[in-house]
Amino acid sequence: MSTLVLLLVTGLGLGALYFLVASGLSLIYGLMGVLNFAHGSFLTVGAFIGWEVSRRLSDGSWWALVAAMLVGALVGALAAAATEFFLIRRLYNRHIEQVLVTVGLALATVALFEGIWGTDPTYVTSPAWLAQTTEILGARIPNNRFLLIALAVLVLVTIVGFLRFTRYGLIIRAGVENRTMVTALGIDVRRAFTVVFAIGGAAAGLGGVLASIYYGYVSAHIGSSLLIFAFIVTVIGGLGSLGGAAIASVLVAVLQQFANFYLGGTGDLAVVLALAAVLLVRPRGLLGAKGSTA
């Protein structure tokens, strides 16, 4: 029982990370049809700079952690908005080229991160409480899992609220459904593109800081390794569906934890098999719209 609870909560924590990456990917894809390979780099740069700032403030305190998260989200948002503005926008509606540019950016930035911060992991110091455990139903659960889950839920609620109650949110929701018609109503949908990139980048940057708490370190590849799972999550959840991304994040992460524990560390393979199964049964994903299998 305690193992079950531990796996479940740890899975939820990992799912929270996946969601922070996948939410942006899914929104960006849904609105713009862009598969963003550079999304992992937004996460990495957010994590690195977030921790740099935090380290200079006061290492290991709660204040420093909050600062790291805020800076991480801000840096992620800026990096993403700049990417949209300077690279993606120039290739408006040329989806393949847009993907290619993000691929180039991902390769270049990871190399740059290695140049700046080195190839070895940089270990981070977070408040002591996060490294301790709390006992729930006999399971000793690392406290950082609770932080991850709480913040992912907060991000989900914030994004949903933004989409539901603001004009930009309205434009984005409409644009995900039918971008052409939004334009035909006299709305410059490109501004919404920048907003979506910024939101996705902020979530990823925050995710970067949290991922480094989860793993205990930052590295130049932390973003790209999470990105692949985020891709799988978005396909399973249904491209462009935020709710789908949330559900699939949890399912994938929990499945991964269970397979790792009970099936001899085969978590990654189990996830790919799950992806194959979803494709066979339901190519458009759990909550994907009809006709959006492409």
């Binding site: 993907v99 194959a276 190519p283």
Partner: peptide, 27 residues
């Protein structure tokens, strides 16, 4: 399996398979 979807989904799915292959090789 991958060709059941097209376009960007196809790209992601092939990526996932490649990742699985990479994991197998490293294990």
């Amino acid at each position: 399996l991958s060709l059941r979807v097209t376009g960007i989904s196809f790209a992601m799915v092939t990526l996932a398979f490649a990742q699985a292959g990479s994991v197998v090789v490293r294990r």
